[in-house]
Amino acid sequence: MIELKSVTKRFGGETAVDAISLTVNRGELCALVGTSGCGKSTTLRMINRLIEHDGGEIHIDGRPIREFDGRILRRRIGYAIQSTGLFPHWSVARNIGLVPRLLKWPAARVGERVEELMALLGLPVEQFADKYPSQLSGGQAQRVGVARALAADPDILLMDEPFGALDPITREGLQGELRDLQSRLQKTIVFVTHDMDEALALADRLVVMNAGRIVQQGRPLELLRAPADDFVASLLGGDDRGLKEAAITRVAERMQPLSLRLLPQARVHRDATLRQALAVMFREHADRLAVIDDEALPVGELSLRRIVGAGREGGSDT
């Protein structure tokens, strides 16, 4: 568990972070969002003492981080950044094994751990272990970066726009993988991004920052439905907010049981998002969709009225 209690950071005369308080619970993924220069990266880097905080207190598992030596603290916290920061003169395997070696693990254990992590992140050992970072694609390099951050099995993972430099398809793929990893490993993750879709898709808790202060925090749906002010509303997409909400709501949550009416031709998977369902409707000129499962068998149906939320309390849409 990470607790920030009215933490402040000044650079010269400028206040970069202004008395923010924040609690990230164990196993939670907390996304810090905001415009450039709002203090989100500074906040992240104060947690592993890459930047020292000037005021307030930061506690990890109840102990103030100033009690630890900065280096020791950082070896216990995973850290992944946008430009990966992989060492170009080291092989992939050596890069991943960095922190375990700093912690003086025996060589055999380091080797085992590296192989385990490469398997976890879908990097075949025989293919990648001896490659150098310059021989990797952007997505592969970022996987290595995440593997390196996880190497010593830290409870806490700090990620600073880890997928920011990737193309949209690779980015979405890695976001999906991170969600899967998180559901298996249950790390406490603080994730900085300026990509609102990414934050909405990944976060358990969304923290919006502006000019060094926290403007609003809560579950993504809470923020989408009740933004605290115009800044949060516009950051969340202004009028597009509805579509963002649709993008994080599953079809299965809104579908109705099969009725006696004729099933429509147009169909959508039960795990798709409402946004995708809307796209199908738009494309097929349909206002009703059949909902199918993995075997392509119909399991329900979804109408436009159900999507937009009308008639949720009522039963039928006819």
Binding site: N48, L50, G70, R71, I72, L73, R74, R75, R76, Y79, I81, Q82, S83, T84, G85, L86, F87, P88, H89, L98, V99, L102, G145, R148, L158
Partner: peptide, 25 residues
């Protein structure tokens, strides 16, 4: 700078950064 940042972020000390990262590179 990203390499420096990563080296620090992983908990490498000044001497370790100099000998293992900066000088070889």
């Amino acid at each position: 700078p990203a390499i420096e940042e990563a080296a620090r972020g992983m908990g490498m000390g000044g001497g370790q950064r100099l000998w293992q990262v900066e000088l070889p590179l």
